[in-house]
Design a protein around this nucleic acid. Structure first.
Lengths: 338, 338
DNA sequence: GGCGTTGTTGCATACGAATGCAAATGGTTT
DNA sequence: AAACCATTTGCATTCGTATGCAACAACGCC
């Protein structure tokens, strides 16, 4: 059935050497005479030989593969992370096995696949990890790094941007720019990013003697944010500021305010988002938002993974990276902010 | 160094059977007594055994892996395709190995990696394939399917939406809605999607006795489209319609017209995009555009791949899927269009 | 009870490359 | 020419699982 591929043995025969010699030609630091090497490479080229990395993985017991688990790809923010992760892993000579995991049960089958696949590390991009699999990974000393999801399992590493600080900054900024009735639209309640932003935000308001006048729940997507906006603005007095837990929703808020409520941004309502996605910079929105250091987060996460793979022992580390406020025209500004 | 993982041999020892019996418990349709199976599964569970799919791949000579090559993930259109592809492959029991390939030289190293990885099929999402690698894939009977990139190599399959027809529709529609000075912003010149759209568009204009008043080049991204817009509108008489080769650019055009030129859409200028990305539906844009059947394209591409893998012989097939016009408020409409 | 039939099981081998070890090679020194 | 060393090479084994084949058991049938 399957077509036989060219093996090192055939190359060896053609070059008149042993299979070992062929192998040594394709592994760095191996002892091989330049002349032999040349002859072998010529034979390999002639036959179209490529080392079979599956066989190599089996004998060396290292797949040089990292599994990446994601829950959504429609958010450009995570798509960009995947982009960075992919290029970065390629640079380090690792392959990237991609898995999408939605509900609980799908997640179980995905984790099963990953464990069988002999991936050497797992990168979770905004995806959840069940406690039992976390344990199983630790038991097999497979490092796991979660990005933007907090979890309390022993041995699981985390990289996150400082969502609390970001939320705090928004609260403080809106108060200082003179907003009085400040509303919040959350993301998925189970996502720690949303809850952290929320907590920081409320703490800042409280510190300045304010409180959050209204809250609604979104799902990080356009439609729910639109519904949330209608809910927030269903009765006067309207909020004069809305903090949405991500840009995607903030943009939905702006669109809804303008097209359905006839309100202006920022004159009538200030809007703040989170993520600094490309859309936030578009002239139509000019959204004030917080930039997560996407690239650094991914780079840091991969560094953690590879370090743990190299050292051989998994350790639950926790990195928090600072967030940068991006001030644009979707918010009133009564004073200069650093 | 490497921690030894639990093998079928250890499970066999614990269950008091041979290694073969353990293997048979984990392969469907194998001959195994229910009682033995139960005993083995219990032992496997106790030890935390998972079959090593690398060893399995080596002996069965099938990796059950598809390599996906992309050039960009910042375009949500392709991110969505990847999403669909991933879930679909998972359903079929295949793994997805992701590669990003930018320039020529990177592409060569990526293709080398793929060939070594023993992937059973290659899906190119808007990425280019060099002639030599196409040949090498055919020689190894590895099926290759390209989505939205045309290529003339023997044995390489293609799935595309009917870009020509889409472009034709736009040309016809703009003429019929009374536009007089119709401009075009292209995508990357080497992408067949852009050239096909362009060709259909020009043919339609010509058929109706019009021509394209001005053209500019974009790169499918926001910034270049903005530059292109400035170029198109640097002198009067302004175009009264712009067809951008994708939504991303169309949105950039609208933003630039509104914020920099003080022009209204669609009163002063009609704008048409391509792709029907989520942004196109946002209230601020209400972009008339053409919807590519993303899901069908990917599903079709994967069906082609798997069929060729099963049958064992690669064949260069070519599928064109119809495109659906989505009429929104970014264009004037002087007559009812189907 | 002997025989054929069906269903299970274990043995042995294969997949393709990496690598420890010993043998062989080649060059240099005494 | 012998002895020595450094380098290169081949042999044999290994990784963990699948599978053809033969042995075997259980069972019903004549």
């Amino acid at each position: 059935m399957k077509k036989r591929s060219v093996t090192s043995l055939e190359v060896a025969a053609l070059a008149g050497v042993s299979q070992s010699a062929v192998s040594r030609c394709f592994s760095p630091n191996a002892s091989i005479a330049p002349k032999t090497r040349e002859r072998v490479l010529a034979a390999a080229k002639q036959l179209g030989y490529r080392p079979n990395s599956i066989a190599r993985s089996l004998i060396t017991r290292s797949s040089r593969t990292i599994a990446v688990v994601m829950s959504q790809l429609d958010n450009p923010f995570y798509a960009q992370m995947l982009d960075v992760a992919s290029r970065r892993l390629q640079q380090h000579g690792y392959h990237l096995l991609l898995f999408m995991s939605g509900d609980e049960q799908e997640s179980a089958s995905v984790m099963g696949e990953i464990l069988q696949s002999q991936a050497e590390g797992i990168l979770m991009l905004a995806a959840m990890l069940s406690s039992s699999f976390a344990q199983e990974c630790v038991a097999r000393s497979i490092p796991v790094v979660m990005i933007n999801r907090t979890v309390t399992f022993e041995g699981v590493s985390q990289v996150a941007s400082d969502n609390y600080q970001g939320g705090y900054w928004v609260g403080e900024f809106l108060v200082e720019s003179g907003c009085e009735r400040i509303a919040f639209i959350s993301g998925l309640p189970e996502s720690s990013t949303s809850t952290e932003r929320h907590r920081g935000f409320l703490d800042a308001l409280a510190f300045h003697g304010h409180c959050c006048c209204k809250e609604a729940r979104g799902d990080y997507d356009f439609a729910t944010a639109q519904a949330a906006t209608r809910e927030l603005f269903n009765a006067k007095p309207y909020p004069d500021a809305v903090f949405a837990a991500n840009d995607h929703m903030a943009v939905a808020v702006m669109d809804t305010l303008r097209s359905e409520m006839g309100l202006r941004v920022p004159e009538d309502v200030s809007v703040v988002g989170f993520d600094n996605t490309p859309v936030a910079a578009w002239p139509s929105y000019q959204l004030t938002t917080l930039q997560q250091p996407i690239e650094s987060m991914v780079v840091e996460a991969i560094a953690l993974l590879l370090a743990q793979i190299d050292s051989g022992n998994v350790s639950g580390e926790y990195k928090v990276l600072p967030i940068v406020p991006i001030l644009r025209a979707s918010t009133r500004c009564s004073k200069t902010v650093i």
